[in-house]
């Protein structure tokens, strides 16, 4: 009896990994998926932030892809280990704080460790030569193979014919003739292949698979590092960067203001960790103060929050200020006018 060849695929939830797995599955290989959770992923975790009524919760595309393919999916929590990739990327950052090349090396290295532990034969990714400016270039794709330690056990089925032969091809685990030679930024070949396989409802993430490719998100993260005096974050920090308006009126604190009800509900969960403000005389948002704020700072924060309440046109807005210990007091303030909120406060 011939041995069942087994591969593990990096599943992001996008079209490329979906197709890459299908191409290899069709050659009789048993495939399972790995999905890495870095904390910055666009997938999932925005469910909780939305308004309840509107909550048609978004599906997790990695799980959806696995289900379409009929493969198991292992979701690995790499939040802690991944910090080093974000703090000190050997190959630097992309257009924003996205360390794409180091990230790919890291993920393929983890996948390589996984196949060694679990007796799998090789690794699949949906990478395509020339598709992404940093990690998927002709000169950087070999870097991923080499620095991850996976070497020629890393197969990119969509682009394999543009790349040197890998061990799965040499060993006859897959046939090179039935792999593809896609290259460049065009999505057309992938879309045609998807059509051929009968996939029509797939995710097409625009910039990348994580928030680090987002300019606005990256600038908030850079601000966090700058004012904390070090590159550091906890999972709650990076979750909170996705929620609300962030304004920094003074170097020692910033204010996170909910933009709608769903965000307000989400921020409620952080009331014991942050000094928080809520308008009581008028409908208004919940806000958290991140940093050490003096009485005077709290007064300023209260005026700022009042500006985002329904009382912004009134002379007096009353707020409830609650400390981390749950002790609260009332504060009446004059809302800041539009001119008193400089653009530079907005992160």
């Amino acid at each position: 009896m011939t041995r069942q060849v087994k591969a593990v695929a990096l599943i992001s939830g996008g079209l490329d990994s979906l197709l890459a797995v299908k191409v290899v599955q069709d050659q009789g290989v048993h495939v399972e998926g790995i999905n890495f959770f870095t904390g910055f992923c666009v997938e999932g975790h925005t469910h909780a932030i939305r308004k309840k009524e509107k909550a048609k919760p978004k599906r997790n595309n990695a799980l959806w892809v696995a289900e379409q393919l009929g493969i198991k999916l292992h979701i690995l929590d790499i939040i802690e280990e991944y910090k080093e990739v974000v703090f000190n990327p050997k190959h630097g950052y992309g257009a924003n704080l996205n360390p794409c090349l180091d990230c790919k090396v890291f993920m393929v290295r983890k996948a390589h460790e996984w196949i060694e532990r679990n007796g799998f034969d090789f690794i699949i990714t949906g990478e395509v030569v020339g598709q992404r400016p940093m990690s998927q270039r002709r000169d950087t794709m070999p870097v991923v193979s080499r620095e991850s330690g996976a070497d020629d056990l890393l197969l990119r089925p969509l682009s394999a014919r543009n790349l040197p032969e890998t061990r799965p091809e040499r060993e006859g685990w897959v046939s090179r003739d039935r792999l593809y030679g896609f290259s460049g930024r065009s999505r057309k070949p992938q879309m045609e292949l998807a059509q051929r396989f009968g996939f029509d409802d797939y995710a097409q993430p625009a910039g990348g698979c994580c928030f680090l490719t987002d300019a606005n998100y990256s600038s908030k993260l850079a601000d966090l590092w700058r004012f904390r005096g070090a590159k550091a974050y906890e999972i709650d920090d990076i979750m909170l960067l996705k929620v609300g308006r962030h304004l920094r009126p003074r170097p020692n604190f910033k204010v996170i203001i909910a933009r709608e009800e769903g965000e307000g509900r989400f921020l409620q969960g952080y009331r014991k960790q942050f000094v928080n403000l809520e308008t009581v005389s008028h409908p208004g948002p919940l806000a958290l103060i991140d940093g050490e704020a003096s009485e005077e700072d709290i007064q300023l924060a209260a005026r700022l929050v009042a500006r985002y309440s329904k009382g912004r046109g009134d002379d007096r807005v009353e707020l409830q200020v609650s400390g981390r210990d749950g002790v609260s007091h009332r504060l009446a303030v004059v809302p800041l006018s539009a001119d008193e909120v400089p653009e530079s406060w907005h992160l």
Binding site: P57, R59, N60, L63, A66, I75
Partner: peptide, 13 residues
Amino acid sequence: PGALIDIPAWCRI
């Protein structure tokens, strides 16, 4: 609330 979708999906696969 996403757990009501994601956990069953993970269980199915």
